[in-house]
């Protein structure tokens, strides 16, 4: 399937969730409503024409304009096509519906995005920090993150 066909199929399945798309770039992407991401994911996973069963990558993003993003790079093992799904949220209300129940491979990536960007994935089974200590202040990959001077009594910029 070409990316245009994927977009059309997705629109026919859950058209209200699709916000935007850009198909003429190196890797075409579709932007969806963050809180409906789980519905979109379900459609992407279960429709036999789309059949996106493999999460290549899931990344958090800070666009440096007050919005955060969750970017899913999807691949279909059977159909051999790819698509990028983006969910863009405001910094103040960083909530995205979790897809961990649909793609097991997204679970740890979402934890990482929560850890690094503070994006809260609603419905995630185990949303804890993954790479940083549990008591770490803030989310370091955000562009507005300031490295704390002290962490647990240790001077940070050594």
């Amino acid at each position: 399937m070409t990316s245009q066909e994927i977009l059309d199929t997705l629109k026919s399945l859950c058209g209200d969730a699709v916000l935007d798309a850009k198909l003429d770039v190196l890797q075409p992407w579709i932007s969806v409503e963050p809180l409906k991401l789980a519905v979109v994911a379900k459609a992407l996973r279960e429709d036999p024409r789309l059949d996106f069963d493999f999460v290549m990558c899931m990344s958090g993003m800070d666009h440096n304009n007050g919005t955060l993003g969750a970017v899913y790079h999807l691949y279909s093992m059977t159909q051999k096509h790819k698509i990028v799904i983006k969910a863009i949220v405001k910094n103040e209300d960083a909530r995205v519906a979790s897809t961990a129940a649909i793609w097991g491979g997204a679970e740890w990536h979402e934890r990482e995005a929560y850890d690094m960007f503070g994006i809260v994935f609603e419905g995630h089974p185990d949303l804890r920090r993954i790479l940083l200590p549990d008591d770490y202040p803030g989310h370091p990959l955000r562009k507005d993150f300031v490295v704390p001077e002290y962490y647990n009594g240790m001077k940070v910029p050594y």
Binding site: N91, G118, V120, D126, L127, R129, Y136, P137, G138
Partner: peptide
């Protein structure tokens, strides 16, 4: 914005 880290008890 810095949110408080949420510590969720480990589910067995």
């Amino acid at each position: 914005m810095i949110t408080e880290p949420r510590i969720i008890p480990t589910p067995y």
